[in-house]
Design a binder for these strands. Structure first.
Length: 283
RNA sequence: UGCUGUACUGACU
């Protein structure tokens, strides 16, 4: 039997609020609502599903919140756009760890407050790769590639995510050539960077190069298939879109939307409609 | 022990 924890985890991952509430009910009925571990998971679930009020009330009912509880509520506030509240919780806790700091940096970074994010980053007692990457991402995402580049040079040990962020920024800027060069010159590759290159080539109209990269990548995950499919679909290539879609052994909403778009772009509106009705779990 | 922070794909916005 799956435990409450496992069930909650999958709800959180799938952002399934409805099922999450059911599990919450079962937890209450089993009189486990004061279990701190489960409460932490509930706060996280409600926060990620957009119910900040519910997250807060569960957090407040925790008798002795631990560092996880605090970090989760800070994260919940920032994911729901409440930076002021997140900051208040941050100040209220008395044993902050690196994650508490990084959560706050990330909150301001995602809100586009680069200078504030940097200020908090500079105040951190300890910085790890995740905190560096959060800030590098913020600069890269705001087209401040020079600053992002300065930071990756300054950080002690750039990791896979650091390079992914830079590669993504170059692709967003339309510079696939430079992105490819960095990809080729680093050993820090992952399925994420491989997929990014596929997307980068496809977005530049180079579906042939995208396909070469796709064929060369060591493992084909759901996202890499979706990237390739999106490339064909955007290029108006219904035949290859169909082949890609049929070749997938698992599909998600992005896959279904991709194939549907391919039909629509090719002018096959009936085909698109058929796909739409055959599609499981429309969102 | 298990719970929290950073990166990739579609459409909408």
């Amino acid at each position: 039997a799956e435990t409450f924890a496992e069930k909650l985890r999958s709800c959180t991952k799938a952002r399934n609020l409805w099922h999450g509430k059911e599990i919450h009910n079962s937890i209450v009925q089993s009189r486990l609502q004061s279990d701190r571990f489960l409460a932490n998971l509930l706060v996280d679930m409600y926060g990620k599903c957009g119910c900040l009020d519910a997250a807060i009330s569960i957090f407040q009912a925790i008798a002795n919140p631990n560092v996880f509880s605090w970090n989760i509520i800070i994260s919940a506030c920032s994911q729901n756009g409440k930076l002021d509240l997140a900051t208040q919780y941050f100040h209220k806790m008395n044993k902050r760890d690196g994650t508490s700091w990084t959560t706050l940096v990330s909150a301001f970074a995602h809100a586009g407050h680069l200078q504030l994010a940097m200020k908090i980053f500079n105040l951190m007692p300890m910085r790890d790769a995740v905190s560096w990457n959060s800030l590098i991402w913020a600069f890269a995402d705001n087209d401040e590639l020079d600053e992002a580049w300065r930071m990756i040079q300054a950080m002690p040990a750039p990791d896979i995510v650091s390079w992914t962020v830079i590669i993504q920024a170059l692709i967003d800027a339309g510079d696939v050539v430079q992105a490819r060069e960095i990809f080729d010159n680093t050993t820090q590759r992952s399925s994420v960077t491989w997929s990014l290159l596929v997307t980068g080539y496809a977005q530049g109209g180079q579906t042939d190069k995208a396909k070469v990269v796709f064929d060369r990548m060591p493992q084909h995950g759901l996202t890499s298939w979706n990237s390739m499919l999106a490339g064909y679909s955007q290029a108006g290539n219904l035949h290859e879109s169909r082949r890609a879609f049929d070749g997938m052994r698992e599909r998600d909403v992005a896959s279904w939307t991709g194939i549907m778009t391919a039909y629509a772009r090719a002018g096959h509106l009936e085909g698109a409609e058929k796909i739409f009705s055959a599609m499981p779990g429309k969102d």
